[in-house]
Amino acid sequence: MKTIFNKTSAIILTVICMIALMSSCKKNNDDVIVEGTANLRVVNSVQGSSSQDFYQRDTKLTTSAVAYGESSGYLTAQSGASSVSFRNSGSTTANVSASVGIKANASYTVFYYTNASGTAQLNGFEDDNTAPASGKSKVRFVNVGSALANSINVVAAGGASLTAGLTFGYSSPYSTIDANTALNVNILSSANTTVIPGTTFQSGKIYTIWFDATNTTTASYHVIVQN
């Protein structure tokens, strides 16, 4: 799992910048400034929510509010240390905000979701946009299904496990599969299986599949085509 949206001290961000971005980091007082931009795609995975605007500091990045089940295209954000937030369309009040560190020239998918108690949360995962070989597809999975009683397992048709024990709020690594391969999704200790048809996965394409749920034993899937 690669995650960026954790509350991180300026000291830690300075170390990260020194290691990963030495040519583009500089320190001014206690703030870390990374020169450059990054790409952020935002997803609204909260059932029944208002459409969401996404802000970096007090600048709205989304041109159109994102409804439940939808994702934006890539938005251009400043890299480095800053705050980000989701807000109901037209509102100045944040539903959730976080202090984050964003790598220059990287791409991320950022999720708006809620935990089991209904508290709004956000997290972002770094995207791998390197296309797979011809005849192959690349896919990762994100569990934002707070209603699910247990973790998620995904198995390709033919029996190969793609992810096992994917817990709430986490992303799996990317897996490479043959194009047109169906996937079976089930919840630990549940007999229910959700099938993602093979026609979903085309040659040369990259996918993020995120899961939510309306009950404790069955995952619902949503497909984002990254390229």
Rank of each mutant, 00 (worst) to 15 (best):
P197I: 04
L40E: 10
S172N: 01
Q47Y: 13
E35Q: 14
C17H: 11
Q202Y: 03
F211K: 10
G204S: 08
Q121N: 03
T63Q: 14
A106M: 07
T193E: 07
V84W: 09
I19V: 15
S89R: 10
I152Y: 01
S49R: 08
N6G: 09
K103R: 10
F125E: 14
V195S: 12
F141Q: 03
A164K: 05
T208E: 03
I4S: 13
Y174L: 10
A157S: 15
S220M: 10
V15R: 03
N215P: 01
I102F: 09
F201D: 06
Y108T: 00
V225L: 09
C25E: 08
G145C: 03
L75P: 05
V139N: 12
T3E: 15
C17G: 15
A65P: 07
Y108D: 01
A182Y: 06
I206N: 07
A219Y: 05
S9I: 12
P197E: 04
K60V: 06
S50T: 11
G204I: 09
V34H: 09
R57I: 07
L166G: 00
T3L: 14
A10M: 07
A219H: 02
A104C: 06
S83D: 15
Y74K: 09
N184T: 07
A164N: 09
T194N: 01
G48I: 02
Y221F: 12
N123K: 08
Y108R: 00
G118M: 14
P173L: 01
V15D: 05
A106Q: 10
G198N: 05
S190Y: 11
F5K: 07
D212G: 09
T119E: 00
A164Y: 05
Q78G: 14
D31V: 08
S83I: 12
Q202W: 04
Q226S: 14
K27H: 13
A20E: 15
T199W: 02
V34M: 09
N105W: 09
G36S: 12
L188R: 15
Q56A: 02
I16K: 12
S172C: 05
Q47V: 10
I4T: 13
T119K: 08
G69K: 02
Y55V: 02
T194G: 00
E126M: 15
T216A: 02
S9W: 12
A94F: 12
V185W: 02
A133I: 01
S71F: 13
